[in-house]
Design a protein around this nucleic acid. Structure first.
Length: 145
DNA sequence: GCCAACGTTGGC
DNA sequence: GCCAACGTTGGC
């Protein structure tokens, strides 16, 4: 049973990293997703999985790490039964945010969904990509990471 | 602010 | 079930 990694995309003006951090361990719904692919990925998420928090638009960088704290359930922001969301909480900020430019120029990351399908707002991250990005972000990975 | 890429909708 | 038209996203 291997752990899975993800990436959540947000616009700072809609939901910033500071907003996420302010929710603390209680976390918050990752609502508002209206895309089947993104929803399907959220359905695969398990409590304890981790993800990156990425800012699109002007910022274009990974700024933090989050953890799934509740699995897929109906999105409270719509009556439409098709849409679901998970809950996530902030774990830590990256000491050094990793920019989209850095990601695009690193050949090891050229297969990332972020590079190949920039519009997908919730996406999977491979384990090796996760490790590389954590390293780039200044997180020293230890045995308990 | 523009525009390419993508996803969704709706007419046929 | 196809595809044109439309809307949205997000990089530049």
């Amino acid at each position: 049973m291997s752990k899975h990694y993800w990436l959540f995309k947000s616009e700072k003006s809609t939901w910033s990293w500071e907003d996420q951090v302010a929710k603390g361990d209680a976390g918050e719904e990752w609502d508002g997703v209206r895309n089947y692919q993104a929803r399907n990925f959220m359905r695969e998420m398990k409590v304890g999985d981790r993800g990156f928090f990425y800012l699109s638009q002007r910022d274009r960088e990974i700024v933090g790490i989050v953890e799934i704290i509740a699995e897929a359930h109906p999105d409270s922001t719509t009556e439409d039964q098709r849409w679901e969301c998970v809950n996530i909480k902030a774990i830590q900020s990256l000491p050094t945010p990793v920019s989209l430019d850095q990601i695009k120029t690193d050949p090891r990351l050229s297969d990332m969904v972020l590079v190949k399908n920039s519009r997908l707002s919730v996406q999977p991250v491979k384990e090796d990509e996760w490790r590389i990005l954590c390293e780039m972000g200044g997180i020293v990975s230890g045995p308990r990471q």
